[in-house]
């Protein structure tokens, strides 16, 4: 396929996909300029972009972005490790799962934001309580999805491995784990987006760096364009993380995607 042809095919798709976003940006630009909204409270995207450029030029944007990214990745790594291990365990042992299910459902509904004061009381204002709030927010979707994934593994696959003489370890690692992988990754992606939400809350209290801090600090010093710049950066962080997690997911579960697109 020539480049020209490829553009002709993908371009209409790209335009239709970004139509909503483009219309929103246009409305956002126009509204404060013609006085529908006071521009002191809503900076148009062009002004926000300029503020972002200046933040980047001072090196502050990269600093805040990387601090937030680091917190998200540490929190996510801990909850992936803990969530997968606990989820595999509870999914494998039905009796354990049965007695813990109600507790886990209750914990899942317990907002990480509501618990933040508790974490501060227990762990202070430092990095630890920030990591814990991010961990808490993302742990439950990962744990519960992993557990469901393990429970839903087709029993005929396990039975078939047993008749081949497979050990328990083989059945667990080479049958149950890959069979549950698609659901585990769905949980991890959900957990990833909860991490980005939680990092904002964590950085709004007792922090002096990070995108959440940038948003709240700009608001307090009435630097409205930079505040919106921080919000946009958080959206970019969330989208980027989701994109990368999706790429990892695809590389592990490509067989599943082929079924969906192939049949």
């Amino acid at each position: 396929m020539t480049l020209r042809k490829r553009i002709l095919i993908t371009a209409p798709d790209f335009f239709s996909r970004s139509a909503g976003l483009a219309a929103f940006l246009l409305l956002w630009e126009i509204a404060p300029r013609i006085g529908w909204v006071r521009s002191t409270y809503l900076s148009p995207p062009s002004v926000v972009l300029r503020a972002l450029y200046l933040l980047a030029a001072r090196g502050e944007l990269a600093k805040h972005f990387l601090v937030s990214l680091e917190r998200v990745l540490i929190g996510l790594a801990v909850s992936v490790a803990a969530g997968c291990v606990l989820g595999l365990f509870t999914g494998y042992f039905r009796k354990v799962e049965k007695s813990l299910d109600l507790l886990f459902q209750a914990f899942r509904q317990m907002s990480a934001f509501a618990l933040f004061p508790v974490f501060i009381l227990l762990f202070g204002l430092g990095e630890l309580s920030k990591t814990i709030i991010i961990f808490w927010a993302s742990l439950w979707p990962i744990l519960l999805n992993t557990s469901t994934g393990v429970k839903n593994v087709d029993t005929i696959l396990v039975r078939s491995a047993k008749t081949m003489g497979a050990s328990r370890a083989y059945i667990f690692l080479r049958v149950i784990l890959p069979a549950a992988a698609p659901e585990i990754f769905t949980g991890i992606r959900l957990g990833g987006s909860y991490c980005v939400m939680a990092v904002v809350a964590a950085e709004m209290i007792g922090a002096n760096s990070g995108l959440g801090y940038l948003v709240i600090y700009s608001e307090e010093t009435f630097n409205v364009p930079e505040m919106y710049g921080g919000i946009v950066s958080l959206a970019v962080l969330g989208i980027g993380l989701n994109y990368i997690l999706k790429k990892i997911e695809t590389s592990f579960t490509s067989w599943k995607h082929e079924i969906i697109s192939g049949e």
């Binding site: 005929i156 696959l157 039975r159 078939s160 491995a161 081949m164 003489g165 497979a166 050990s167 083989y170 080479r174 049958v175 890959p178 069979a179 992988a181 579960t253 067989w255 599943k256 079924i259």
Partner: peptide, 22 residues
């Protein structure tokens, strides 16, 4: 088995090798 019981994430060759792997 009547329902084949093949591992859907493994290619045909990798499915064949499961028992040998064990």
């Amino acid at each position: 088995f009547q329902g084949y019981a093949l591992f859907p994430w493994r290619t045909v060759r990798k499915n064949l090798e499961a028992g040998l792997e064990i």
